[in-house]
Amino acid sequence: MYLYLPVALTSINILIPVGLGLAVGLLSGLFGVGGGFLMTPLLIMFGIPSTVAAATDSNQIVAASTSGTYAHWKVGNVDFKMGFHLLIGGFIGGLFGVQAIKVLKAMGNADFVIKMTYVLMLGIVGTYMFAESLNAIRKSRNRTAEAAPAQEKEGSFTRLLKSLPLQTRYEKSGVTHSMILPIGFGGFVGVLAALMGVGGGFLMVPVMVYILRMPMHVVVGTSLFQILFNCIEVTFLQAYTNHSVDFILAVLLLLGSTVGAQVGAVFGRKLKGEQLKIILAVIVLLVTVKIVFDLTLTPSLLLTQAGGH
């Protein structure tokens, strides 16, 4: 059955957005990512104009991440304090990111820099997570009994972090950090996310796991909480300034994604943190490879719709 989308100005088989929503929602509930890096290109592939695809996806993520946050909150896996601090950083970073885009555009090579940053970030994060979690899985197999104590080898970097002021206890995550840390790294992710035009979940998750040393399951819940607020802001701005949110498409997507997020959250509890990390790493690497192919293979159309209206 087909439905007409009033803002995208096109007609779509409703099974496509519902199915896409289900799949991406599942990933969202499992890994705490928004899934924009998958959803937006897929929507464009199915004939949705690129601006509408990005804006509507953020509207849909509001629903999926509400559903996911709620599911994780029920089992105590959302660190609200950490989430707020990351949000503060992310908000400030976003403002800088938007300015950075203006500077890059003025310099005339914005597209190149943005694409390269994206590919490099995805590649580095994916490879690192993959290698690290593979290592961890091997270790835990070798000596199942005494896994934890071996990690306590403090580097100078860790000592430096501990010496920062404003040390705060994050109860849910079971870690103590300076507030500056989540705000600073939240800001860093915010700059990059704004630059690349993505939500940044795939960057925020590794930051929380490897730098903030939070347990994977709390990372997923907290990341979703943080994404929820980001996407509310983005949806409003897109609807208000670009008129590019398609309400009907968003409803079709969220029919799938809200359910997918719940299933993902339940399923995620059955997996170990290391297993979650390695699957996410593989997905990130696959997306990297796909983007590299897109960049190097001759496109079938040399003309595409312009971004803005």
Binding site: Q60, A63, T66, A71, V259
Partner: peptide, 9 residues
Amino acid sequence: ALGAGFGVG
């Protein structure tokens, strides 16, 4: 979207 997310939850 918020309502739908909570509702499904």
